[in-house]
Amino acid sequence: MGRILTEKDVEAAVRGGSVYAAGGGGWADHGRMLGLAAVRIGRPELVTLDELEKDDWVATAAAIGAPAGTTRWEMQGVDYVKAVRLLQEALGEPLAALMVGQNGRSSTLNGWLPSAILGTKVLDAVGDIRAHPTGDMGSIGLAASPEPTIQTAVGGNRADNRYIELAVRGATAKISPILRTASDMSGGFIASARNPVRASYVRKNAALGGISMALALGEAILAAEGKGPGKGGGSAVIDAICKVTGGAIAVSGRIARKDVVYTNAAFDIGTVVIGSGDKATTLHVMNEYMAIDDAAGTRIATFPDVITTLDKDGEPLSVGQLHVGMNVHVLHVPKTIIPLSAGVLDPSVYPPVEAAMGIEIARYVFEEETRKKRKGKK
């Protein structure tokens, strides 16, 4: 028997997911809307892979787009449900469970409403423990697969006649851009269900336990906040975040510069500099924080490490909330202590991100493996 998700789990999922959002946007209120709707009209159930048969179908529930607050996006809870229905119709078989591509302010809760209404289980597995800029990074190793798959998308601004429903088939690399285009045409944010695979494939390729990790972190944050004024406050929250994630504060200081621009490919790209002179630290951004360099250009942290900015109260801040003069703490959780999926260990997902950002990422991701191979050859 899985864990029935309740109202108290909603806030925990949003709060823990906000840390793993790694500076990505998303909307905490959208997450609360999805979660509260689910627990009020049904009994969404969180299950592990051990509770599924190896041939059960599992799909990824996702929200596509970069709603920077400047677009007239509209996504209703029912859109997530309709996307799953469309996928089941196209597949011709029922889905047993839904996973998500990444944790985040709302994405941790993407599978809850379909679970409450359709009975699909919320699978305790994610495509990436933290948020990332491209869908390929959360696609559990399917990014370069030539095998045809199915992806659906539903949503849009109804008042502007932008509501769209679509189901597409093909290799995921070829059809994922179609969904991003649909998201743009719908107003900037659209619900999707995609890439149905067998549970046995998920077991080998996903980051297992990702949802319960977000829930446990959120519970610890809420407990630390409950200590009240004068009993720890923000430092108690930050301590709790570090303890539960196994991470540490890599840098603290004042934001000296922020150079982040929104591109026509729907990405926020640029840098944020904390401190000055030989103490300056640079955060590299592509929607989320992807790397940290010190003043000498030495790499301190690289995706898929968890990198998150927190304010003095331990509240996670998205890139969009940062401004010059603000004091922040930067949480760093090394990739060596979190479950990693096949998506973030797939070399093919890095070249487009490196080209867009103008920095090296893959070399740092795979340096340990490269070192091991070199030792093996000696």
Rank of each mutant, 00 (worst) to 15 (best):
G358Q: 08
T172W: 11
G226S: 11
V344H: 03
A342H: 08
G111C: 05
G155N: 06
M99I: 08
V47S: 06
G320N: 06
D311G: 08
Y163H: 10
G17I: 06
M185H: 12
I164G: 05
L34N: 02
G104M: 03
V14I: 12
T302D: 10
R162I: 10
G92R: 09
D160M: 14
R371G: 09
M357D: 08
I190C: 01
V251G: 02
Y20T: 03
T120H: 06
I190A: 07
A199E: 07
A153S: 12
E93R: 13
R180E: 11
G170A: 03
V306D: 02
R43H: 15
L217Y: 02
S176R: 12
A59H: 09
I117M: 13
A171D: 10
A68V: 13
G228M: 09
G232L: 03
R257Y: 12
R32Y: 15
T48R: 12
L34A: 11
A342T: 14
L345I: 13
K227E: 11
V261T: 11
H30C: 11
Y80H: 12
D346V: 09
T309R: 02
R198L: 11
L95M: 10
G210A: 08
L317N: 04
S212Q: 08
L222F: 07
V260E: 00
G119W: 08
N103W: 04
G233V: 02
G69C: 13
R130N: 05
K54V: 15
G314K: 00
S18M: 09
D259Y: 10
P146T: 13
M326V: 09
G188D: 09
D278M: 08
L142D: 01
P114Y: 05
Y163L: 14
I337K: 02
I338F: 06
S139P: 00
D124F: 07
T149S: 07
L317S: 00
D136A: 15
Q151I: 13
R198K: 13
I269F: 06
R299K: 14
N161Y: 08
I117S: 01
V330T: 12
E367H: 12
A291C: 10
D278I: 10
S318P: 00
E315Q: 06
E89Y: 13
A62W: 05
S348V: 14
K377P: 00
D278Q: 09
K377L: 15
A250N: 08
D56Y: 07
I338W: 00
V14C: 07
G16M: 02
G358T: 10
R105A: 05
A301S: 15
T309Y: 06
A362Y: 05
Y262D: 04
E165Q: 14
V237C: 06
E368M: 10
I269E: 03
K372P: 00
A248Y: 15
A193R: 08
G2M: 00
G156E: 03
